[in-house]
Amino acid sequence: MAKITLQSLLMLLVMTVVTGLLYPLVITLVAQTVFPKQANGSLIMVNGKVIGSALLGQKFSQDKYFYTRPSSTGSYPYNAAGSGGSNLGPTNEDLIKQMKERADNFEKTNHGNSKIPTDLITSSASGLDPHISVAAARYQAQRVASARRLNVEIVRNLVDKETEQRQWLIFGEPRVNVLKLNLALDELR
């Protein structure tokens, strides 16, 4: 028993050094050398300031920006240091109530001239979803164009340009990265 205990201790020590120290260190070293941008969070710099990550959504509330999806992260929406989903079940009345409220808000700004894409009024799994569906982007184009006094065609073209297809044309879903789209909008003039 004493011998096995000693072996267990020593084995755990060796495994800790190999899998707990060397392994993450080697991966970090290679990652920081070969993929420095990705390994550090795909941060976006504008005028020398970090304004966010290309992979993380942010909350937008002004009419001139495309909105991201509702977020249920801790403390405040799109808290990138406190990811979380709503975990509301499918028959929970709060879920339907929240969705109705969000839908009403969109109806006001969009004048009910087209149907609301569901992803725009449901909260994501991470609370940090950077994307909306292509339909959700097109749905908002008129509002953004009016707020910016732009021809709606210009905004729609920008949405098309920023649309990401399925990866390798196979994997995942077509989508629009909202932060990138909004940055592209700000660069229009």
């Binding site: 709503s86 149907k115 894409p117 009024i121 909260s123 994501s124 994307h131 989508r175």
Partner: peptide, 20 residues
């Protein structure tokens, strides 16, 4: 139950899912 919401494009259950 999403049918209770007026003018919704579809009833796809995107609550708790990521668009990608």
């Amino acid at each position: 139950l999403f049918h209770q919401i007026a003018n919704l494009a579809n009833i796809s259950n995107m609550e708790g899912k990521e668009v990608r």
